[in-house]
Amino acid sequence: MSTFFDWQIFFKDTGAGQTYLQWLLNAWAWTLLVSICAWIIALILGVSVGIIRTLQNQFIVFLGNAWAEVFRNIPLIIQIFIWYHVIPSLFITLRHVPSFILVVVALGLFTSARISEQVKAGIESLPKGQRQAAMALGFSNFQTYRYILLPLAFRIILPPLTSESMNIIKNSSVAFAVSVSELTMFALQAGEETSRNIEIFLATTCLYFVSTLFVNQLSQFLERRVKIPGTFGGDK
């Protein structure tokens, strides 16, 4: 090593017609793409399962709880392996699904269990009077959730939802295990090719930083926008 830091490395050609900088940015895009797609799946499923777990029907509640327990209690990397190795060999038709989609599904379902937990806690933290008042006004179950419970619950769970959104970016790094070309995979491969691990790792870590910081700022902005004066988290 001639000097401790050699940032020129990012302008070198990888041998595949692009510089390491281009590869890095490409990997960043993959990380964001995996995170965003998984986040959409996680939010839709997580909110649905979370609502289901607060209903009166015992059987449906049991199914919701089982969903949450299964996806919460198995490590993410094993869930990814199951989607990547096990599911395609059990269901032949899924054999040609690209690993990107399998990772997105795995990460989405994994996170949906955590989001469902927060949604459930958010709804249950509301005073019982809210639901009773809605019933007294003749609201149907759907209307009670749509107009009374969910708008209040969402504002309460915005902070934990933020940290879950930051977690999804961090957890997307596990996709390296099935060779999705995201940031961690880039760090491993480019580090090995160039032997400039420190520069490569620093750049990768910075991009993770920037991504999670952006989510954090975005949700703080959102929190300010949606708060209702007189309720939880709102002024007076």
Partner: peptide, 14 residues
């Protein structure tokens, strides 16, 4: 807390 655990593992190993 804002770095993925996999990266932390790799950093320490390096």
């Amino acid at each position: 807390r804002s770095i993925p655990l996999v990266m932390v593992i790799l950093w320490f190993y390096l």
